[in-house]
Each structure stands twice: as structure tokens, then as C-alpha cells.
């Protein structure tokens, strides 16, 4: 039997990868297309392990992302909290969906998170409002989701058995 601390380890390592992908420098044209990696990983883990990974986890993950991105402390924590809340309340239904249907919900959540994040940055005076091209990240996130889902599921089945 594998122990429970194994679960934490897998979740934390996967989240570390998500952070890497979230801040690795990209060329200009790709900046708006960068998928929301941390959001997707939080989405997966709250759906797959709702009894282990909850709102507190999402909040902490968002807080660390704030530090990494140098944004106002609590901004990503807030948006990820909303994502985790919706996912938690729908997780039983979500598990029945196929990955394409899941990416539909992920798309909506991603749009909400992006829009809210941008709006909060603007009203807090961190950036000047720009065009809406930053919302393109929701498309790329939803597109990549089925592949990421099967990858994470195989990782979960391989390393976590409870």
C-alpha cells in the first residue's frame, strides 16, 4: 500500500511543474496564448481528490503564484479560490463528463479567472487596461485540457491508490 504522504508529494511536484510552465519566458506572440497551467492543475486535483485538495490548497497555490508573478498578494489566490469552489461543488458531475465536456467548463472558469484578474489589476492600479487579447489564454487552456487530463489521470492511477 502506498502511503498518504505520497499523494501530497505527487500533487506538490505537479504544481511545481505548473509554476515553471506559468513563468517560463515566451516569445511575444505566444504570451497571450500561454495556457493557465496552475488553474488547470488546481482544477484537476480538486476534481480528482476533493477530500485532499480543497479551497485552502487552491488559496495557497494562488498565493505562491502571486509571489512568482509579482502581482498583488491575493489576486491569483482569489481567482483560484473561485475556480476551486465551483469545481468542488460540481466535482461529482464533472467526473461523469468526458474530457471534451470538462474543457467546456474549464473554458468558462478560465474566462472568469482571466477577466476577474485583469479587472482587479486595473482597479488596483497595477496595469493600464489593454485590449482583450489576454482572454485567448482561455482557448488554449480548453484546447490542451483533454491531453493534460489523461496525463494527470495516468499519473494519479500510477502513484496514488486511494
Amino acid at each position: 500500500m502506498k502511503s498518504k504522504s505520497y499523494t501530497n508529494l505527487v500533487v506538490i511536484i505537479s504544481l511545481f511543474l505548473a509554476y515553471l510552465l506559468a513563468i517560463v519566458p515566451l516569445p511575444d506572440w505566444a504570451m497571450n496564448w500561454r495556457p493557465q497551467w496552475v488553474l488547470m492543475f488546481v482544477f484537476y486535483w480538486t476534481m480528482a481528490l476533493p477530500y485532499r485538495v480543497g479551497l485552502g490548497f487552491a488559496w495557497a497555490a494562488g498565493l505562491l503564484l502571486d509571489v512568482l508573478e509579482g502581482t498583488m498578494l491575493g489576486l491569483n489566490a482569489f481567482t483560484l479560490l473561485i475556480v476551486a469552489y465551483v469545481t468542488l461543488s460540481l466535482h461529482q458531475r464533472l467526473r461523469m463528463y468526458n474530457p471534451i465536456q470538462q474543457s467546456g467548463l474549464l473554458f468558462v472558469l478560465s474566462l472568469v479567472a482571466l477577466g476577474l484578474g485583469h479587472w482587479l489589476r486595473v482597479i488596483s492600479g497595477q496595469i493600464e487596461p489593454v485590449d482583450s487579447m489576454y482572454l485567448l489564454a482561455a482557448f488554449s487552456s480548453a484546447t490542451i485540457w483533454p491531453a493534460l487530463f489523461s496525463l494527470l489521470r495516468s499519473i494519479r492511477r500510477r502513484f496514488i491508490n486511494n
Partner: peptide
């Protein structure tokens, strides 16, 4: 070593 992932803010690390 890095730049802000946000397109709207021009900051570097």
C-alpha cells in the same frame, strides 16, 4: 532572468 507573464505590464525579473 525572466519577464512578467503579463503582457500589459512591462516588468522584468
Amino acid at each position: 532572468v525572466n519577464r512578467s507573464p503579463e503582457r500589459a505590464s512591462k516588468r522584468v525579473l
